[in-house]
């Protein structure tokens, strides 16, 4: 004898509470999408094998039961198309301040690798992870994250970096608005070259059309991308050949990167030759070595370093 499908289905539910079953099912449904009473009823009839319609009062009872365990559910109204909307629930992630601090320390370590792809992929994941935090954890997290810290990129900044990376791949001409600390907002026309990461910060390396110089623009200071067009034949940027000397621990620990090569080496010092596209950045790098570094050539950059050092000393008089 062919069993009636509904009877077979009901047998499946021996030794369970049908009301509990329905309540759990409604919760799962609302997790996915807001629902009207009719949608809940239809769902329960197909999934829970209830033979009869569930009354509105019963649905209200189940919704109140979910609220009793800590769910926040908005009742149907004209504002939400008469749907029950699950705003919050107690199955989210609760993390202590100690754990969040450990989590932040891990993120700090990741920023040391200076690999921008890695950094934004991680921050993207962290943003998704935050979505499952409960309210108290979000409050703790927001207290711990200082505003404008360089350690986290927002969703908008991540999207901006990915978009700029696409423009870099195609060497697009981009009109953007940049927030300069000195001059405030300014419009710039640039040719996008590549995304780089230095000192835990992500920059757009680009050619400034106005000055024909390579710039590194901080991503968080790019306010808006206004225009994008195909660049006319790209002017080849000629790098400056720079020689510098390292002594002390900087010399011992030095490992050539990119265009760098050691051209002379003795017991206490090494001389390095490299190609430089952005003078300002390179001078920053030289200063960062402190008294372990001496710029040898070209003369004009050497003068810039000396001038800067003399200005620093003067400010202490």
């Amino acid at each position: 004898m062919v069993q009636n499908q509904n009877e077979k289905s009901i047998n499946k539910f021996d030794n369970i509470s049908l009301t509990g079953f329905r309540c759990a099912k409604i919760f799962n449904l609302l997790l996915k999408t807001p629902c009207t009473y009719e949608e809940i009823n239809q769902f329960l009839k197909t999934k829970a094998n209830g033979l009869d319609d569930i009354s509105k009062d019963s649905v209200t009872l189940y919704i109140n039961t979910l609220r009793a365990i800590g769910c926040e559910i908005k009742r149907p109204s004209s504002k939400n198309n008469y749907k029950y909307v699950l705003i919050d629930h107690p199955f989210k992630l609760s993390l202590s301040s100690v754990f969040l601090q450990e989590f932040l320390n891990i993120r700090k370590h990741l920023s040391l690798c200076n690999n921008w792809n890695f950094i934004i992929d991680n921050d993207n994941f962290i943003l998704k992870f935050i979505e499952i935090f409960d309210k108290e954890t979000i409050l703790r997290w927001n207290k711990m994250i200082k505003p404008k810290t360089s350690y986290f990129y927002t969703k908008e900044e991540i999207e901006k970096i990915k978009l700029l990376n696409k423009y870099c791949a195609k060497k697009r001409r981009v009109g953007l608005i940049y927030i300069s600390p000195e001059k405030g907002e300014k419009q710039m026309e640039i040719i996008a070259r590549k995304i780089i990461c230095e000192n835990n910060t992500i920059y757009l390396s680009c050619l400034n059309k106005e000055t024909d110089k390579i710039l590194h623009l901080r991503i968080d200071r790019i306010k808006d991308i206004k225009t994008v067009s195909i660049a006319s034949q790209e002017k080849k940027v000629v790098p400056i050949i720079v020689k510098y000397k390292l002594t002390g621990t900087s010399a011992y620990l030095f490992e050539p990167e990119n265009a760098e090569k050691i051209i002379k080496k003795n017991t206490n010092e090494i001389i390095i030759e490299t190609k430089v596209y952005n003078e300002f950045n390179f001078i920053q790098k030289v200063l960062n070595y402190g008294n372990n570094c001496t710029l040898i050539s070209p003369e004009h950059m050497k003068e810039q370093v000396l001038s800067k050092l003399n200005r620093i000393l003067k400010s202490y008089e």
Partner: peptide
């Protein structure tokens, strides 16, 4: 507020 006790205990 009226709730279903059994369902409540199960969700708890």
């Amino acid at each position: 507020t009226k709730i279903n006790s059994t369902a409540y205990r199960i969700m708890l």
